Amino acid sequence: MFKYLLILLSLIGIHAHATPIRIASDIWCPYICENEKGYVVELTKRAFEIQGQTVVFVTIPYKRALIELQRDNIDAVLALTPSAITNNQLIDADIIIGYNSNDFYTLIGEDESFETIADLNQTLQAAVVSGYNYGVELDAWLNAHPNTYFASGNDPLAMNIIRLVKGRHSVIVDNKNVIEYTASQLNLSQQLRYAGTIGQPVPLHVGFSQLNHANAKMFANGIEMLKANGEYQEIINKYKILPSVSTNKARHKHLQKFLPVINK
Rank of each mutant, 00 (worst) to 15 (best):
Asp155Trp: 10
Glu137Leu: 13
Val77Asp: 00
Asn100Val: 11
Ile85Trp: 09
Asn143Leu: 13
Gln70Val: 07
Leu120Gln: 06
Asn88Leu: 10
Gln89Pro: 05
Val77Ala: 04
Asn100Leu: 11
Gly153Ile: 03
Ser113His: 14
Gln89Trp: 09
Val77Arg: 02
Tyr134Ile: 03
His145Pro: 01
Asn102Gln: 10
Asn102Gly: 03
Phe114Cys: 00
Gly98Asn: 06
Gln125Lys: 10
Leu124Phe: 13
Ala158Lys: 08
Ile97Gln: 01
Leu157Cys: 00
Gly135Asn: 01
Asn147Gln: 11
Leu120Asp: 02
Leu120Ile: 06
Ala158Ile: 07
Asp103Ile: 12
Ile117Pro: 01
Ala93Asp: 04
Asp72Phe: 05
Asp139Thr: 11
Asp72Thr: 09
Ser113Pro: 09
Glu68Pro: 01
Leu69Ser: 02
Asp94Glu: 13
Arg71Pro: 04
Asn143Ser: 11
Gly135Cys: 02
Ile85Ala: 06
Gly153Phe: 03
Leu142Glu: 00
Glu112Met: 10
Asp155Cys: 03
Tyr132His: 13
Gln89His: 15
Asn87Ala: 15
Phe114Glu: 00
Leu142Ile: 07
Ala140Trp: 09
Phe104Cys: 01
Ile95Cys: 00
Ala118Thr: 14
Ile91Thr: 10
Trp141Asn: 00
Glu68Phe: 05
Ala140Arg: 13
Ala140Thr: 14
Thr148Phe: 04
Ala126Tyr: 09
Leu78Asp: 00
Ala93Lys: 12
Asp103Phe: 11
Ala79Arg: 04
Val136His: 12
Asn100Pro: 08
Ser130Leu: 09
Tyr99His: 12
Ala144Met: 06
Thr123Pro: 05
Glu115His: 14
Ser130Asp: 09
Gly131Phe: 04
Ser130Met: 11
Asp155Asn: 10
Thr148Cys: 05
Thr106Glu: 01
Glu112Lys: 11
Arg71Glu: 07
Asn154His: 14
Val129Met: 05
Phe104Trp: 03
Thr123His: 06
Thr106Gln: 04
Gly109Phe: 05
Thr123Ile: 12
Asp103His: 15
Asp72Ile: 03
Asp92Leu: 01
Ile74Tyr: 06
Thr86Arg: 14
Gly153Pro: 02
Ala79Lys: 04
Thr148Gly: 06
Asn147Phe: 08
Thr81Ser: 11
Trp141Cys: 00
Ser83Arg: 14
Ile117His: 03
Gly153Tyr: 05
Ala93His: 12
Thr116His: 11
Asn121Ile: 14
Met159Thr: 15
